[in-house]
């Protein structure tokens, strides 16, 4: 579910085009856009505090096989939430799981890993070794 939520919506839609068709569905709830309160911890590890809100969209569906799928995704993209919920339902179907994992989840995981790795490499290029001149305590 995390992979689907973090996916770049355009990428998810493109993978769904090439994936086996998802079963028909009825919407049980949403898609509804609302707020999620982001919490931090005082000092990074102490008591929780409310940092501020973010927008999020949630949807629940029941597909033609009777499976129920849920999704909550950051942002206001109803199509993203609906696609994630439909996939959540379809991925519970053992007959569909492997094909959907290969055509959607694995590809999203690869592109996310690449994105993170590129960020980490750019960060590494700005790594600096300071040395002090006066005293080396």
């Amino acid at each position: 579910m995390g992979l689907l939520a973090r996916a770049v919506p355009g990428e998810l839609a493109a993978h769904l085009e090439t994936a086996p068709a998802l079963p028909d569905f009825v919407v049980l709830r949403g898609p509804q856009t609302g707020l999620v309160m982001l919490r931090g911890r005082a000092g990074g590890g102490g008591a929780p505090f409310n940092l501020g809100e973010m927008t999020a969209t949630r949807a629940s569906v029941r597909d033609a096989t009777g499976r129920i799928g849920h999704a909550t995704v950051a942002g206001r993209d109803a199509a993203h939430a609906l696609a994630a919920a439909r996939l959540d339902a379809a991925l519970q179907d053992p007959a569909r799981h492997a094909a959907l994992k290969a055509t959607v989840l694995d590809r999203l995981a690869v592109s996310e890993t690449q994105r993170h790795a590129a960020g980490a490499r750019r960060a590494a290029a700005t790594r600096v070794d300071f040395f002090t001149l006066a005293t080396q305590r």
């Binding site: 509804q32 856009t33 609302g34 707020l35 999620v36 309160m37 982001l38 919490r39 931090g40 911890r41 929780p48 409310n50 940092l51 809100e53 927008t55 999020a56 949630r58 909550t72």
Partner: peptide, 10 residues
């Protein structure tokens, strides 16, 4: 907008 949830502490 309605409040849907609060997150786990980041």
């Amino acid at each position: 907008l309605p409040r849907l949830a609060a997150t786990l502490p980041l």
